[in-house]
Design a protein around this nucleic acid. Structure first.
Lengths: 329, 329
DNA sequence: CTGTTAGCGCTTTCAG
DNA sequence: CTGAAAGCGCTAACAG
């Protein structure tokens, strides 16, 4: 049997309270008794029972990370970032991705109600009122990864989608001298997609160039289909700005199938800078997002909330983006 | 305050034991009392306190998934597979990747000793005796993801590296008629790397073709450097079989820099079939491995151990591989 | 079928 | 500075 504080206490001829204090680095113990107890604990290879501790303290050493279905790469980077920060503070990360048989909302509710977690990081494409109210009612520290600035109730970490998209579009117009652009959007209810679209449109309007918008869904297939529609227009745009790289890849697929050359026949650019983008033929010009940083900052924010007093003001972090110029436009 | 079984019991005029039985679907309760209790529980929005339950039962609803540093894509796929199966059984997945300040061994020990987890899935490139004995001493259900068949003590799930490599090499020799091949290995202490190397060598020997081995490390840079050495040989091999796709990408980088054409100047093939491989120029011929399946099977094996009696014989699952023929050789 | 009771291992007042 | 004791919410014998 694994030793308990009771056993340590018996062998050290002290009370369990004192042992507990030593284990928890409570200063109100003399050096001598501390050393003595530590010595015995060491000998017995004592390790606190986390389950008991969590129960007694009514809090766990676990934080939850809930991810909706999302592109694989994004997924990994966020997990890595969160885990790195959490682990360094002796917290463990419980991941859950959305599953067919359970909605995101149910999953969140389950996690909140069962009291397993001490904090929650939630990656959502869109935060509706119901979810928002569920979250505020639970008094669990929560950090949202979402780029919509309307959301003011929670600590939030977002991507600078608007600016990234605006810069890319400006680059296309001012540096590449395109004057008829197109944009393939992400899903309409996705906040990142919305901001990217807005940035594109605003830049086009600012410089008075012609543009066309095609609806996509962030998937490779969606990009393929949108590209097809765009190429079948009576007057074709000169360049396609896909709202993410996966859709840009879909465009590459369609264009290759139809023997259209990038960038001579048409330019293609993306957003995200996923790993594959640099290896495409031609390498994809895109907007880089440091996703691991998103995860790290989210975890940091959460730890502040968990450890700090609970009247810290809501904070918002924006992860900057960066234009990556390659050869696809 | 969240309601407890005590409160439910009081309102229902029954004992807490009866409430507990109802919550745990113990059949020894009459329909009527069951309905009555359920009704009250519902009204109070009762949710069992998992922390208390875990503590009382001395087991948690958590399984651990420990991953060493590894290529991102591999990482994600395994997590997805494990989580999908675990979640369907109401178990949560705690992920931990190796960290600078903590060795894999320390991490495993921490997890085992603190009693947080009910089971552990361990992805290791090489299982040494020390780790092995730590694992057997803990009576925690463990499943290892590792391809070395010498390991007979644990449930294990491995990749059919040897066969995949042997097939690929055979294809290179018999179908593509190369008669001077080269292989860039992974790290020497990695079991998958070892098996891939063995498969390569055995096939070369079987057909009596000339070959050369260069040491790599599974990284893109390692592939680049190994490729360079190979290309500087007085007599150059006709094809490079990199032990994974990342190194094949490193080869692509080197060859492109040196204006060498694939496959006309030299063929390149890989192993893993990561996402990017199909988009390389030219698309990479490689050996496909279904990593998500690895994760799923690992989770299934673990759940069997956790739920089943503990005298289930050790089982070993091999995930098959598949040749993916594209245009790089 | 239902109730009583004794903990699980640890934290945390409250005394001393 | 240290000890005694209560109790976190639930499970699991054991009685009845």
């Amino acid at each position: 049997m694994a030793p308990t504080i009771k056993e340590i206490a018996a062998r050290a001829h002290v009370s369990i309270a004192t042992v507990s204090r030593v284990i928890n680095k409570d200063p109100r113990v003399t050096k001598e008794t501390r050393a003595h107890i530590l010595n015995i604990a060491e000998k017995l290879e004592y390790r606190p029972n986390i389950l008991a501790r969590n129960f007694a303290q009514k809090k766990s050493n676990l934080i939850g990370l809930i991810l909706p279905e999302i592109s694989d790469e994004y997924f990994t980077e966020v997990i890595k970032g969160v885990d790195e920060i959490a682990f360094s503070q002796n917290l463990y990360t419980v991941v859950a991705s959305s599953h067919k048989y359970k909605s995101l909302k149910d999953e969140v509710v389950t996690f909140i109600r069962n009291g397993l977690l001490s904090g929650l990081i939630l990656l959502v494409s869109y935060l509706d009122d119901e979810l928002s109210s569920i979250l505020s009612k639970s008094h669990l520290p929560v950090v949202i990864i979402n780029s919509n600035s309307k959301n003011k109730k929670f600590d939030r970490i977002g991507i600078d989608d608007y600016y990234g998209s605006f810069s890319m579009t400006t680059h296309l117009i001012k540096k590449k001298h395109y004057d008829f652009l197109s944009h393939i959007t992400g899903p309409l209810d996705n906040d990142d997609a919305g901001l990217r679209k807005d940035g594109f449109i605003d830049a086009c309007k600012k410089y008075g160039v012609k543009y066309v918008i095609e609806k996509g869904d962030f998937s490779q297939e969606g990009g393929f289909n949108a590209c097809k529609k765009l190429m079948n227009l009576k007057s074709r745009p000169q360049v396609i700005f896909a709202a993410n790289d996966m859709m840009a890849i879909g465009c590459y697929d369609y264009l290759k199938q139809n023997k259209l050359e990038i960038p001579s026949d048409i330019g293609v650019v993306g957003f995200d800078d996923i790993f594959v983008s640099q290896y495409l033929n031609p390498p994809l010009t895109t907007v880089h997002v440091n996703i691991e940083e998103v995860g790290k900052r989210a975890a940091e924010l959460l730890l502040n909330k968990i450890q700090g007093s609970n009247n810290i003001p809501v904070s918002v972090v924006h992860i900057p983006t960066e234009l990556i110029l390659r050869e696809s436009c």
